[in-house]
Every structure is written in C-alpha cells, then in structure tokens.
Design a protein around this nucleic acid. Structure first.
Lengths: 332, 332
DNA sequence: GATTCGAATGCAATCGATTGCAAGTTTCAA
DNA sequence: TTGAAACTTGCAATCGATTGCATTCGAATC
C-alpha cells in the first residue's frame, strides 16, 4: 500500500479511501490511485484490515461428517447466501472428536471468523454456553433445547408422524421403525413421531418393531434381517434416514420379497441417494438449501446488528412419493 | 493480553512468551502468567498474531462441487493431516463460477490462508500462473499440464486400461465406454485408456460404442438406452465414474436384462455409492484419503520450506471386484 | 474582499500480538 | 571478590490496513 501511495504521490490514507470509500476522494485522484494499484497488482492485506476493523467477514460451519450428502447441500445453501453478502466460509469436519472441536472453537474465539453455524447439535468443546448465547451462533437441523441459541429446524416429530401416517393410510398396521443413533437428538424425535402416529391410529405399540440403527446402509440391512425373522414380520418400515432405507430395500429384495409388493418402505431426508434405489425411494424431503441459507442469513444478521432475541425457524418439509410405498398386501 | 500482563505484574512481552515460548521464561513466572490467563479466559487474538508472524497456519481447498462424495473424502484426508500439523482448513465450493473463484483467490492473495489445494484442475480466476508457481499451490486429482505446479494424481489412462482389460479378460469384445464430461481433463484420459486396451487386444474401435456423458446417474441411463438400440449392442460397459455406472445398471435392468448376466458393467472411483447398487459395483478404487493427505503434506511442505521443485505424486489404485462383471454371454 | 463552508487530503493513533535488542539479575568458576 | 556467561524481563518497533481529527484549499455567499 505504501508503494502505491508513493507512486501516486499521495498518503496511504488516500489510497485506502480511494479503494474502499470511493465517494470520499476526488474523482481524479481516485482514478489515478486505482490505476496505479491495478498496475502494481496491489491486493489489500486482509489481515491488516481485519485487525483494524475487527471484522473477518467470514463464517465457520461445523459439521460432524463432511461426507454425508445431507450436510453438503446444507452447506451449499449457506455458501450461496454468504457469497451474496460478501462473506467467506470456512467448513470444518469434526468427525466427533473433541480436540478437533476445540481447534475450531479457537478459530472463533481468536477472531478468525465472526460467526458460527453448527450442524452438530452441540457447542464445540472450548466454547462456553454463556459466551455462545451472546455470540453470532446458530444451530441447524439438530436442536439443543438446553442451549439458548437461534436455530433453523424442521418439525421432526411432526414429519415422522406424517411419514408413518402415510403408511397407515395405505392400510398398513404392522409398521416397524428403524431408529437413528440415539446420540443425535433427531433420532428420538423421529421415533416419537412414529409412536404418535401409531397411537393416533389406535395401533398398539410393539417394542419388537422398533429397531436400533445408526443411519448406515448396513444397519438397514441388519434391521430387516432381524424383522423378517419375527414370527409376524411388519408389512411396512419407516426408516430414520435415506441411506438406511436403501439398506432395508436391499435386504428385503435379497430375501426374495418385493418392495413395495410385500413390504413398503419410507425414508427421511430425500438426499440424492433416494433416486438411486430401485424402485426409487419414497421419503420426506427436507429443504436443505433453504435451511443453510436461512442459517447464514441469521448469523450474518446477528453479526451486523448484534445479539438479538432467540429466533427459531421451523421450515416446511414435503412428502415425496416415489415407488417404495404400496397398499398393505392381503394376508395369504 | 494487556489485562493479563497487568494482573500478573509483568509486560505483555512476558505474557506472550509465557504462553508460546515456555522455555524462555522463568518457571515461576510462567506458571503464574498461565494461571492468570486461564482465570481470565484469555484467548490470543489470532489476527494480531498472524499480522505479526505473517503466517495464517491455514489452507484453502477449492472444489467444484461439495456435494460430490468423491471430493468429500479427499477433503477428509487433507483435514486429518492439517489437524496433525496444526493447520486449519477452509473449504470452498465454486460450482464453477468465475466470480466465486475470484473471491477465494482474494482470500489467498489477501493472506488469509497460506496455501491452496485445487481439486478443480485450474487456477481460480484472479490468480496468475506466474504467481501460483512460486506459491504453495498443489493440484489434486485433476492435472493441468500447462501449469508448472505440484500435483497429486493417479494414472488415469493406465487404470482405465486396466478396467477395460478386466472386461476383455472375461471374454468381452464388444465393449462400450461411457465418457465423462470433456471439460474435465480426466475424461479424455480415461477414454484414452479404454482405447489403448482395445488396441492392445486387437479389437477394432467402434465410435458408436463411445457414448458422451457427464458423470450423472441420468447420463448413465440415457447412454444405455442408446446402446441397447444399436443393431449389435455391447456386452460390457466401462463407465467413467460410479454414479453413471449406477444409472447404467438401472437402465439395463429396466430393459429386462441382467447385470452381469447379459451386460457387464465396471465403474471408476469406488465412492460410497458403489456399494449401494444391486449387485454391488465392480470398480477402480482411488486412494482418496491418501490423495488428500499427500496434497496437504505437500502444500504444508511448500509453506514451511519455501518453493521447491515441481513434485508430481502418482498414487496407486486398485481394482475392486464386486458383482457387476461376469463372463461374456455366449451368443444365442 | 472577507467570511464561511465543504471537500480533499494527510497525520498519526490504533487494532493485538511477536520479537530483536538492551538492560538487569543470577549463577558460577576462577 | 570479580567477571563472564546464562537467564529473565521489558522497551519499543513492527506487521498492514483504517479512520478521527486537523489542515489546507478553493468556491460560494454576502
């Protein structure tokens, strides 16, 4: 910058203003400075600027698992908003390790980013709840009722109920639920929705039909093997996510049965995977792009206007009917 | 920091040293300072530090498409190395937009990150080739021969040859190739490998069997529809990636034919998807984690030791035999 | 022609750490 | 007892921008 100033015969103050506050300097000077800056290939040092302005203009998104396509689309949504608002994005995959979380918390506490979007459902180790509530931090997808934070969510119990009710509407009464990992708050929430739907329809709750799982393809296969060995197997399964639903479909087909002829299956999330099964998966679509975008809007708002009242956004889902749900087969 | 210094009755210089150069300060002072820093919840401002040391200790990974599982695993590999080496990672999805690339180039030029890992096969708009060659920048997965940069790659033609040869070894002679998008350098490379295998086996090259595609599921389906309408359809298909291979499998099965009974299919990449098809996909596995890790190692090396000679790492792949390749059916 | 006002510019402080150098203090051997 | 060497610590400059305040200059008003 000093170079540019010298070459242009002005002070660095004028150079700075010519580049960032065009209206504050004489048109002729401005153009000259800009031309020289251009020629010299001058790029402002963002660190110097940031130290002075105390604004990084950037967000950190924390994710458990980057590989999970569910998250990547969310991130995309957030990125597009950041792009518009001139924010840059840092994405961090924690894989659930505490020390990695600490590392990222450090980035935030150290002022490298000025806002946090958490897809993990909890604060990173190293960030205290009291500080977090006064900072630009929002939760997405996974709530944490104990934390007094802004959040962008869907109504998990509600849509799980809706999914289960869809099966009931097709005449199914013996309906299983493949749960997600209970460490994640969405899993009990979806299970709750399942139970509620059964109760509303007056169907007795059979604990044998509630199978533990961990969202993986393999856990879907395993669950179905288990369910098929029951004296009275279910005619429909509500899976807590898409990937495990694909596993379930596979296992059913490998047992020589048909989907949805013998067993109907419904998933949750509507990731890209849903279109890869045969038949394509009926599932609940979460508005992931929107969720990411809303979250980014929220954090940036907090950054620019300071702490606000706790906002909780509940976005709408949609039941996507494809080919894995059919009427309940008549007993042979 | 001034707070801590005051409270401890020492200068900020001593505080700084107590925290970052423990051996340079008296044990008693050090412990006292650290205790006080702890109590006050002091976090060093990374920006101040960075401005002084001129080191961000962080990398930027540039990707076209964050949603692509191929990339996410690569990123994971890079992240794990960065973690060990105490570097932080910023991930940017460009979606191919030039202005987004410029934005990220700015981050690099502005000193926010000190190294660049490019999964895009080209320099981001805004970064000149001459500057790039002297900077810590490496290409991964997609080469660019015109750029004099370090790179971590696989032998695409070689492994495409190997995949095709695998089909030939099963007796197939009428083998199609579903190409990738020609805008990406890996696509012609893989096609080249396919052609080479045919030539080696003395099989005439039939242009009709080389179908254009774009790596998508849909393009796989479309390609197979087209191939099956040929007077003499192929008995095997080498697909340029896994996702399009899944599409191909689906189309074959929907035409009432069997994989691999009637048509054998082989993919490329071995993403998670490969396990989701029925039968599971035979494909070429790229060591993605390793590639990411190697890339990170390389950039960090460049950062720490300054510009070095151009390094090009060629990592080994592996043919993963699952269930989609079988012997060539005898003509009816 | 004097006065006022506004626009354009520069000076110098500032953001929060790190670090070369100098000064002060111990330690230890001769 | 006296230096010399080894430790400790502090001073103040530094990284590269931004910005409040003062200054300068020209134009407009009366």
């Amino acid at each position: 910058m000093a170079d540019v100033a010298r070459r242009a015969g002005v002070s660095t103050a004028t150079v700075s203003r010519a580049l960032t506050r065009p209206d504050q300097v004489n048109a002729k000077t401005r153009d000259m400075v800009r031309k020289i800056a251009q020629e010299l290939g001058f790029r402002p040092n963002l660190i110097g600027r940031q130290l002075r302005t105390q604004a990084a203009h950037s967000l950190l998104i924390l994710v458990q698992d980057l590989e999970n396509p569910f998250y990547s689309e969310l991130i995309k949504g957030a990125e597009s908003v950041c792009r518009e608002r001139q924010f840059s994005v840092m994405v961090g995959g924690t894989d659930g390790y505490e020390d990695v979380e600490t590392l990222y918390a450090e980035q935030f506490l150290g002022g490298r980013v000025d806002g946090l979007i958490l897809l993990t459902g909890h604060l990173p180790a190293g960030l205290s709840a009291s500080l977090a509530t006064q900072s630009p931090v929002v939760l997405v997808s996974e709530d944490n009722p104990e934390l007094d934070l802004c959040a962008v969510l869907i109504d998990n119990p509600g849509w799980a109920t809706r999914a289960t009710a869809h099966l009931i509407a097709q005449g199914h009464r013996r309906i299983a639920h493949l749960c997600g990992p209970m460490t994640r708050i969405i899993s009990p929430e979806r299970r709750e929705g399942y139970r509620r739907a059964l109760a509303t329809a007056g169907i007795a709750h059979d604990p044998q039909l509630e199978v533990p799982g961990d969202f993986s393809f393999e856990s879907g296969r395993e669950a179905v093997r288990q369910l098929l060995s029951l004296p009275e197997p279910p005619t429909a399964i509500f899976c807590a996510n898409d990937e495990s639903a694909l596993g379930a479909i596979r296992a059913v087909q490998q047992a020589g049965l048909s989907v949805p002829g013998d067993i109907s299956i419904i998933g949750f999330d509507d990731t890209k995977l849903a279109q890869f099964s045969d038949p394509p998966l009926t599932t609940v679509r979460q508005p992931r792009q929107q969720m990411g975008a809303a979250a980014a809007d929220l954090v940036i708002g907090l950054i620019e206007n300071g702490p606000a009242q706790r906002t909780r956004l509940l976005l709408d889902c949609q039941l996507i009917e494809r080919g894995t749900v059919g009427p309940c087969p008549v007993p042979r």
